[in-house]
Amino acid sequence: MIDDDAFSEHRPLLFTIAYEMLGSAADAEDVVQESYLRWSAVDRGAVDHPRAYLVRTVTRQALNHLRAVRARREEYVGTWLPEPIRTAPELSEDVVLAESVSMAMLLVLETLSPTERAVFVLHDVFGYTHAEIAASIGKNEAAIRQTAHRARRHVHARRRRFEPDSDSTREIVRRFLTAAAGGEVQALMDLLAPDVVQISDGGGKVVAARRPITGAADVARFVLGVLRTTTAATRVEHATYNGMPAARFVTGGELDWLVAFEIDDGRITGLYGVRNPDKLHRAETVLPLDRGGRQPWKP
């Protein structure tokens, strides 16, 4: 009989790997489910190391899935953002994991090839060796080393400074929302970095900015314009998504949209607004993330 306890034990790790490779909680859940079906059919006696077997299975399934969805994302209406996941505040205690699931990092990972993404995630975030990764994705170790070097150089050239969710970042978000509600333009400007970027994702299903908006003045005007369209019935709730402080806008008991805030050195450097209803179905539940006790690679 198959030991389902082993799968349950490692499920948070498997979901985390799949999510970081795919940027979609829905797709990650599908991959985990597909991996479970494969695990259910395997001869348990032939599996010496369940976690290694499961990680290898999830990695291969996620790679197949990523290759299949890339074409759809190229045809996406407007700007594509990762599907936000609600995370526990304690996630900030693991800065590597928190940064790896942040909106900015997931967008950088989108610019990698599927193999580069898998190698970077497994090596730099989860600490798997080149040899282990080679066995997982069916390539030789030398090729994995070259891929890891290329992916790391690409990511480091594009990564943004990251400050995880904390009391201080939540206070900045609170002040920002208070200023926005009061129409205080200068107060908003004081909280926004000069090169702040606002990105919206409506998926062509609801109204959202089709292109990123940059600069404190333009972002402040955009935020005030959006808030003018909300009704008195809209409730604003504070939460944590992708290891970042966030605001949930709830109307009539339904989550209408959410915004995750990227903060650095006391100022907001990025706002990631997700309105696509397809990406908000799983936004209520806090999802457990896990790196499996591995230590990340250190340069």
Score class of each variant (00 low, 15 high):
D3W: 11
D5Y: 14
E9G: 03
E9F: 08
H10W: 07
R11E: 14
L14E: 03
L14M: 09
L14R: 04
F15R: 03
A18Y: 07
M21S: 05
G23A: 15
G23E: 05
G23V: 03
E29N: 01
Q33R: 10
Y36L: 11
R38T: 08
W39S: 04
S40A: 11
A41G: 08
A52Q: 11
Y53H: 14
R56S: 09
R60S: 14
Q61G: 01
Q61S: 15
L63Q: 03
N64Y: 09
L66D: 14
A71S: 13
A71T: 09
Y76T: 09
W80M: 08
P82K: 13
P82L: 06
I85E: 06
T87Q: 13
A88E: 15
E90W: 11
E93C: 02
D94E: 13
V95I: 14
A98E: 08
A98K: 05
A98Y: 10
S100M: 07
A104V: 00
A104F: 01
A104H: 10
M105D: 01
L106P: 01
L106T: 02
L106S: 05
S113R: 10
T115P: 00
E116L: 11
R117A: 02
R117L: 03
A118C: 11
V119R: 03
F120N: 03
V121G: 05
L122G: 05
L122K: 02
H123N: 14
D124G: 00
V125D: 03
Y128K: 04
A131M: 13
A131H: 12
E132S: 15
A134E: 06
A135H: 11
K139P: 00
E141C: 05
A142P: 00
R145S: 07
Q146F: 01
Q146I: 01
T147V: 12
R150V: 09
R161M: 15
R161D: 14
R161K: 08
E163K: 00
R170P: 00
R170L: 03
E171F: 12
R174H: 13
R175K: 08
F176K: 00
A181C: 04
A181S: 14
G183R: 08
V185D: 02
D190C: 04
A193F: 02
P194F: 11
I199A: 12
S200T: 06
D201W: 09
G202T: 06
G203I: 06
G203K: 06
V206K: 08
A209N: 08
I213S: 08
T214R: 15
A216L: 09
D218L: 13
V219E: 06
A220I: 01
A220V: 01
R221H: 08
R221T: 00
L227G: 05
L227F: 10
T229Y: 13
T229P: 01
T231F: 05
T231I: 05
A233Y: 03
A239R: 14
Y241T: 03
M244Y: 13
P245L: 15
A247S: 13
F249L: 15
T251K: 13
G252S: 10
G252F: 11
W257T: 01
V259K: 02
D264I: 05
D264T: 10
D265I: 04
G266F: 15
I268W: 07
G270N: 07
L271I: 06
L271P: 00
N276Y: 09
R282L: 15
E284D: 11
T285M: 12
V286I: 12
P288A: 10
P288I: 02
P296D: 04
P296C: 14
W297C: 01
